[in-house]
Amino acid sequence: MMSRKWERIYFGLAIMIMILIFISSSMTYHQQTVTPELGRLNLNWLHRWLDPVKINYAGNIYSVETEGLVGMIEFLLRKLAHFGSNFLLGLFAYWGFTSKVPNKWFRAVLIWLSCTGYAAFDEFHQLLTGDRTPMIQDVMLDATGALCGVIIATIVMIILEAKANKKKLLAAK
């Protein structure tokens, strides 16, 4: 079982991720863009891998042809940030609520739904921020990231519980 200390740490990390997501959605696109920095790097070696990639996202086709190499890289980084931050949010929140919601399956559903709600709130927040476009596809991407985080957290907990039970059985013999 997880100690209360680690639960508090994971809960704190989940809150930190939520704050970072909120700050990020408070920024305009121009405040967040990394295209100038990417443009200064020699990324031509990525052409070989990214040239054949075409992604249909929110009714638009994203590719090196349509966005340019730097634009395509930034698009991929932005979507990876959506998925990754919500993956961590789901993971940390699941572990942070171990003793508060002891049933692992109910906790998994509760955390995933909460993360999905927060993703929807985040997109609404972007609606209030200038130069930002809220998209239902981003909510779906965020929800998928959170679901993956919750699934991994659940699997890790099941493995740790099985190891602890095996250790108890061996000690009892």
Rank of each mutant, 00 (worst) to 15 (best):
residue 87 F to D: 01
residue 72 M to H: 07
residue 104 K to D: 03
residue 120 A to T: 07
residue 79 K to F: 13
residue 110 L to V: 09
residue 88 L to C: 15
residue 80 L to M: 07
residue 111 I to C: 06
residue 80 L to D: 01
residue 98 T to Q: 09
residue 77 L to H: 09
residue 99 S to R: 08
residue 100 K to H: 05
residue 118 Y to M: 04
residue 106 F to M: 15
residue 76 L to T: 05
residue 102 P to E: 13
residue 122 D to R: 10
residue 97 F to I: 13
residue 117 G to I: 14
residue 117 G to M: 12
residue 84 G to K: 14
residue 103 N to K: 14
residue 81 A to I: 03
residue 107 R to E: 01
residue 111 I to A: 05
residue 108 A to M: 10
residue 72 M to I: 12
residue 117 G to A: 08
residue 88 L to P: 08
residue 92 F to H: 09
residue 116 T to R: 05
residue 121 F to S: 07
residue 89 L to H: 06
residue 97 F to N: 05
residue 80 L to A: 10
residue 86 N to L: 13
residue 84 G to C: 08
residue 85 S to F: 11
residue 72 M to V: 11
residue 94 Y to N: 07
residue 116 T to M: 08
residue 76 L to H: 08
residue 118 Y to C: 02
residue 105 W to F: 06
residue 73 I to H: 02
residue 89 L to D: 02
residue 88 L to M: 15
residue 98 T to D: 04
residue 100 K to C: 04
residue 113 L to R: 03
residue 84 G to F: 11
residue 89 L to G: 02
residue 94 Y to S: 13
residue 88 L to I: 11
residue 94 Y to L: 14
residue 105 W to H: 10
residue 109 V to C: 02
residue 122 D to K: 11
residue 120 A to S: 04
residue 115 C to M: 14
residue 104 K to Y: 03
residue 72 M to A: 05
residue 90 G to S: 04
residue 93 A to D: 00
residue 116 T to F: 09
residue 99 S to W: 10
residue 82 H to T: 00
residue 108 A to E: 04
residue 101 V to G: 07
residue 97 F to S: 14
residue 98 T to E: 04
residue 91 L to T: 11
residue 97 F to V: 14
residue 89 L to Q: 06
residue 87 F to Y: 15
residue 120 A to N: 00
residue 119 A to G: 06
residue 113 L to A: 05
residue 104 K to N: 01
residue 74 E to Q: 14
residue 104 K to S: 07
residue 106 F to G: 12
residue 80 L to I: 10
residue 81 A to T: 11
residue 85 S to T: 15
residue 122 D to T: 10
residue 122 D to F: 10
residue 92 F to S: 08
residue 82 H to K: 02
residue 86 N to W: 14
residue 100 K to L: 12
residue 90 G to H: 04
residue 112 W to G: 01
residue 78 R to S: 04
residue 116 T to N: 01
residue 78 R to Q: 07
residue 107 R to D: 00
residue 115 C to Q: 03
residue 73 I to P: 02
residue 95 W to K: 15
residue 76 L to N: 04
residue 97 F to A: 15
residue 106 F to Y: 10
residue 86 N to S: 07
residue 86 N to I: 13
residue 118 Y to N: 03
residue 118 Y to V: 07
residue 88 L to S: 15
residue 110 L to G: 03
